[in-house]
Design a binder for these strands. Structure first.
Length: 479
RNA sequence: CGGGGCGUGGCUCAGCCUGGUAGAGCAUUCGCUUUGGGAGCGAAGGGUCGCAAGUUCAAAUCUUGCCGCCCCGACCA
């Protein structure tokens, strides 16, 4: 049961987040440090995310498969940048069945290596290409500092792995999946993300190019919400993924990988949540509508419940995810607050007064208090619910976009830059290198989040080098 | 992994300084009255005081080690 008060976001954004995750029953701490239990309400949200993404993966020709959890340690070592990037955070199994293993096994931190091994066996000819496979699984990275959903030792995600005959095809795939992520984030999660290219220093270990979608949280910090990598021929060469091409020549494949994790739940919380708690986008919410019946005695209860069950059946039949709150002994006021904390987009209040008029009260989560309440006839309830859910979905995106745009600052001086990253994103002309990024990071804690795909098509003066450049970059402090 | 803070019924915490055998509020269960924005009264159940050593006649309290959580750094999706 929920406690009366959550810290406000302005008071302590971190504490607001930590308490909300627990109280909304999205997740809980596990007995092992840094691990997370995803509770049914959180998992239902993840299932809706999975369904929305999986639909898009299938529509672009991908198939799901399952690759093993354990990977020979030597596999990680075959790709130089990959092992350098991942070895500090590997969990290693050295004993099996009470015996020391001949070769240690790592718990997958990501699956490029085992999948590369399989692809080398499966791919012989250009006719075998492209290979387009995705898997839903969890991976383990031994992180030092963890936070529920944002960074845990084990996290749930999907990882897509594809192999192609040419660089151009691989690049097109990489960009296509970035577009899929962008579309998912905007359409389903109402997250106005910025798709862009990562700088060399932020690139995935083993990739030639890394793209990401970056989102702005409610405190102005950035969160990488999904990534898509063009791996070039790096893994193909490390795992000998070759094919015989039309021209009779043996060539290395071009591979990609792309992933999106339960971290996106953290983004949804921190972008849409308010001081009352979660605000879930209708398209992903486990419950889109909660019905709170109101009554004073058994006679009223019977009367109200009869009406409520009918209304619920109608809504469910039209495809709306409805929760009926039948808990006894709790006041309506308590239930209102409880479901608001859990982020249900729309609430139906129905009591004796409504029964008499054959109406209900509809309350929108995105508009607090009386302002968000309307009175609706039973006959038009289905249409009103559908329309209002759509409206909430759109309103969340509009609000988040306005917030983001108001907190992206175009800056031309380093002083303005420092001020900008205190509260939001800094957008700058950029011709710098990894050393300058490092310097900026040390001095301001801000990192180059991405070079947005959408560029102004003009030239400007680089913030640090003073050189003319056609490129703008986004810097921010990040989770 | 470095610096700081904190671990006492499910939750928030008091008690620790000055050792003497564990408390409050909320939550839970039961009963009655309540129920349109976080209900009231009454009763009941629930704690090897994070774990392990040590000091002591006696440890929640003192000492040491370990574990975990939170915050700040470095690392990262």
């Amino acid at each position: 049961m929920s406690e009366p008060k959550l810290p406000t976001r302005a008071e302590d954004f971190n504490e607001w987040y930590n308490q909300l995750v627990l109280r909304a029953e999205l997740a809980d701490y596990a007995p092992v440090r840094g691990c997370m239990i995803v509770r049914p309400y959180g998992w239902a949200l993840w299932e809706n995310i999975q369904a929305a993404l999986d639909r898009r993966f299938k529509a672009t020709g991908h198939l799901n498969a399952a690759f093993p959890l354990l990977i020979p340690k030597s596999f990680l070592e075959r790709e130089a940048a990959h092992v350098e990037g991942f070895s500090p955070e590997l969990a290693v199994v050295t004993i099996g069945g009470n015996k020391e293993l001949e070769e240690p096994l790592v718990v997958r931190p990501t699956s490029e290596t085992v999948i590369g091994h399989a692809y080398a066996k499966w791919i012989q000819s250009y006719r075998d290409l492209p290979v387009l496979i995705n898997q839903w699984c969890s991976v383990v990275r031994w992180e030092l500092r963890t936070k529920l959903f944002l960074r845990t030792l084990e996290f749930f995600w999907q990882e897509g792995h594809t192999a192609h005959a040419t660089f151009e095809e691989a690049e097109a795939e990489t960009r296509q999946m970035l577009d899929v992520y962008t579309d998912f984030a905007v359409t389903e999660a109402a997250l106005p993300v910025i798709p862009g290219l990562k700088s060399e220093s932020e690139r995935f270990a083993g990739a030639d190019r890394t793209y990401s979608i970056e989102a702005m949280m409610g405190d102005g910090k950035a969160l990488q919400a999904g990534t898509s990598h063009n791996l070039g021929q790096n893994f193909a060469k490390a795992f000998d993924i070759q094919f015989l091409d039309r021209d009779g020549e043996r060539k290395f494949c071009w591979t990609t990988s792309w992933g999106l994790s339960t971290r996106i739940i953290g983004a949804i919380i921190m972008v849409h949540g308010d001081d009352q708690g979660l605000v879930l986008p209708p398209r992903l919410a486990p419950f889109q509508v909660v019905i709170v019946p109101i009554y004073k005695n058994d006679a009223e209860r019977a009367q109200v419940m009869e009406a409520v069950v009918g209304l619920q059946r109608g809504l469910t039949a039209s495809g709306v995810r409805v929760k009926l709150d039948t808990r006894d002994g709790l006041t309506p006021g308590f239930k209102f607050n409880d479901w608001e904390m859990r982020g249900v987009p729309l609430r139906i209040e129905i009591g004796p007064k409504d029964i008499a008029k054959r109406t209900v009260v509809l309350a929108r989560r995105d508009r607090p208090g009386k302002e968000g309440k309307t009175c609706v006839d039973w006959d038009s309830l289905g249409a009103a619910v559908a329309a209002t859910l759509d409206d909430i979905q759109a309103a969340l995106l509009t609000r988040a976009t306005a917030f983001r745009d108001a907190n992206i600052h175009d800056v031309a001086t380093y002083d303005d830059f420092k001020a900008a990253v205190e509260t939001g994103f800094a957008r700058v002309w950029w011709a710098g290198d990894a050393a300058l990024e490092q310097q900026i990071k040390e001095e301001t804690k801000a990192t180059l989040r991405c070079i947005p795909l959408a560029q102004p098509g003009e030239t400007g003066t680089c913030l640090m080098t003073g050189r003319p450049t056609p490129t703008q970059a986004i810097f921010a402090r990040a989770y």
